[in-house]
């Protein structure tokens, strides 16, 4: 079994799974019907990506674990998602800011992953990129609307940016897995992803009349399994059914 490949797939899958789970909390609670459906669509896209990746991970591992086992039956320390995606939804502006900061990373990430030497990863990236292209368009558009909207929306989304900023640099700090995957030609060069991210963030914040926060103390640890207190609660809700009634299927 190729341990680097497995870890790398899980790292990508966990980001999609946890963010998808977070956004799905909006289902039925969106500010208006149209945005409720839009957010739920994005959540479903992300969970769909996670499924493809977990199926592949299960195959690569070859130990008889299934996609469900990988999604539902690991403990918090075994999840490799970045801290940004597990942060709470807050208000609509917080969710949009978190989404934008992640989409601006997710888009160039998948774009680069399409060149992976691993054909399955490249194929998943190609399919996911179409979805993420729309996510980025959606969240950019809303950053502009909220930032360049009313005084209240501007202040709220600006504060959300300040709050979430410390979670952004982790996206670009390569983990051991990132480095090995890059060396093997299956992974993505995060410094290139960062260039795109910086440009995109500058571009949109400028139009949105928002201030780019200063880099200060930056949080990290998600890629190593050291999570914020929020992940445990997400997992408790997500895993409850599988743990209470093992082996349940759709």
């Amino acid at each position: 079994m190729n341990q680097t490949l497995l870890n790398y797939i899980l790292q990508i899958a966990d980001n999609s799974l946890i963010l998808g789970s977070r956004i799905s909390e909006w289902c039925g609670h969106g500010p208006v019907l149209e945005q409720d459906i839009a957010l739920t669509n994005i959540a479903l896209d992300l969970i769909g990506q996670a499924r493809s990746l977990f199926q592949y991970a299960a195959e690569v591992e070859g130990q008889g674990r299934t996609e469900d086992d990988l999604a539902y039956l690991r403990i918090a320390r075994e999840y490799r998602n970045v801290l940004l995606v597990e942060q709470p939804n807050g208000h609509f502006g917080t969710t949009i800011a978190r989404q934008f900061l992640f989409d601006a990373y997710h888009y160039p990430f998948y774009k680069a992953l399409m060149n992976s030497k691993d054909e399955t990863l490249a194929a998943i990236a190609e399919k996911s990129l179409k979805e993420v292209t729309y996510h980025l368009r959606f969240s950019s558009e809303w950053m502009i609307r909220l930032g360049d909207g009313t005084d209240e929306s501007h202040e709220k989304v600006q504060n959300a940016l300040y709050d979430l900023w410390p979670y952004t640099s982790e996206l670009f700090v390569p983990s051991e897995t990132d480095n090995s995957a890059l060396e093997m030609g299956i992974g993505v060069d995060l410094s290139e992803v960062k260039n795109f991210w910086n440009e995109k963030v500058d571009e949109i914040l400028k139009i949105a009349t928002l201030e780019k926060p200063q880099d200060g103390w930056m949080q990290s640890g998600g890629k190593q399994g050291k999570h914020s207190e929020h992940l445990g609660f997400i997992l408790a809700e997500m895993q409850y059914l599988q743990r209470t009634y093992p082996g349940q299927e759709w």
Binding site: V32, L33, E34, A38, N41, F138, E141, R145
Partner: peptide, 15 residues
């Protein structure tokens, strides 16, 4: 409902 035509198209895409 949408604030402008751009948002209307995006909302229509999703709905």
């Amino acid at each position: 409902h949408a604030a402008d035509e751009k948002m209307a198209i995006e909302n229509a895409r999703d709905v």
